[in-house]
């Protein structure tokens, strides 16, 4: 029974759905004043039903499979993408009584599952038999390879500091002191997160002015919805990872519970949105240059800093 609740209610499918619908609405509503617009307005209070209607529309629309593609590959990829994006939620300590899967290697599971996602998206582009989709897929792959190195190195810094890969233990041991030590790691994690999630200024794979909609181009109806769900669930997994690794997860100033966790994730979403409203896209070449020339060396330096700080400040711990 518990397994069913975990898989379908919290932190599983239903939770991801609610998160997707709410976050999508929040993105729209939050972007609007930055653009000097109103945003969703008519459906429900503050237009909050808008994404629900979008969701029901997408679910009832015809999913078009183009001629000449392998229909199985084409349709199975969105499902796989959603499942892969949902899996990390099982390893996140949402409250003291979670994670669902208590593992000594929680951090490893988290970053591996986050790291698989771009390859699935590449396959969606590859399977679409469309030049724009294929270019989008190649760009996803290029970007994830160059961003993930720095991402993994940044995500490893708390593990080095606390000497464990167990996410619950990392949260238990975290303190104001460890937070300060991990600030550079957090910044690195956040920058690479933008790259992994294809957010501006790294929204190169689905740059609509260049390659239409990248790997999404041929998708419509339910399949498109699944891909969007996967994207937003991926947001959740990556934000939750950041909150767990660097910000102390459910730990709050006055009380510890899920609300603190949620606020931390929301803050990251807000920063991401503000960047989206103020930064143009860079090119693939510039991204590669930035990643290998700056991010990777700096994340190695960050590891050295964490080791040093551990010996200096946390020698007794």
């Amino acid at each position: 029974m518990n397994t069913v609740i975990d898989a379908f209610l919290f932190p599983g499918l239903f939770y991801a759905l609610v998160w997707t619908v709410l976050l999508y609405w929040f993105f729209r509503k939050f972007m609007a004043p930055l653009h000097k617009r109103v945003g969703p307005h008519f459906n429900g209070p503050y237009g909050s039903y808008q994404t629900l209607f979008d969701l029901s529309k997408l679910l009832t629309k015809e999913s078009i499979t183009p001629d000449g593609v392998n229909p199985y590959l084409f349709s199975i990829m969105p499902i796989l993408a959603v499942i892969t994006a949902l899996l990390p939620t099982a390893f996140i300590p949402w409250t003291p009584s979670y994670p669902v899967v208590e593992s000594e290697y929680g951090l490893l599971a988290l970053i591996v599952l986050i790291g698989i996602e771009p390859f699935l998206l590449f396959l969606t582009g590859f399977g679409s038999d469309n030049k724009y989709s294929f270019l989008g897929g190649i760009r996803v792959l290029t970007q994830s390879i160059s961003m993930e190195t720095a991402f993994f190195l940044a995500a490893l810094s708390p593990a080095l500091l606390f000497g464990t890969l167990n996410l619950s233990e990392i949260v238990d041991q975290s303190s104001w002191g460890s937070f300060l030590v991990l600030i550079p790691g957090f910044f690195l994690y956040f920058i690479t997160l933008l790259g992994l999630l294809e957010q501006p200024p790294f929204n190169i794979p689905d740059a609509e002015q260049e390659i239409v909609y990248g790997f999404y181009t041929e998708y419509s109806g339910t399949n498109y919805f699944m891909l969007k769900l996967a994207e937003f669930t991926e947001f959740m997994a990556v934000f939750a990872g950041a909150a767990t690794l660097f910000l102390g997860a459910y730990k709050g100033l006055f009380f510890d519970n899920y609300l603190c966790f949620f606020i931390k994730m929301l803050l990251m979403a807000i920063v991401m949105m503000i960047l989206r409203a103020a930064t143009p896209r860079i090119t693939l070449k510039q991204m590669l240059h930035f990643s290998w020339r700056y991010l990777v060396p700096i994340s190695l330096l960050n590891l050295a800093w964490v080791m040093l700080a551990k010996n200096l400040f946390f020698a007794g711990v």
Binding site: H35, K36, P200, Q209, A277, A278, T279, R281
Partner: peptide
């Protein structure tokens, strides 16, 4: 011009 760089804000303003 900015729209082509993937930023819609200036166009809206």
């Amino acid at each position: 011009f900015f729209m082509n760089l993937g930023l819609h804000t200036l166009f809206m303003w």
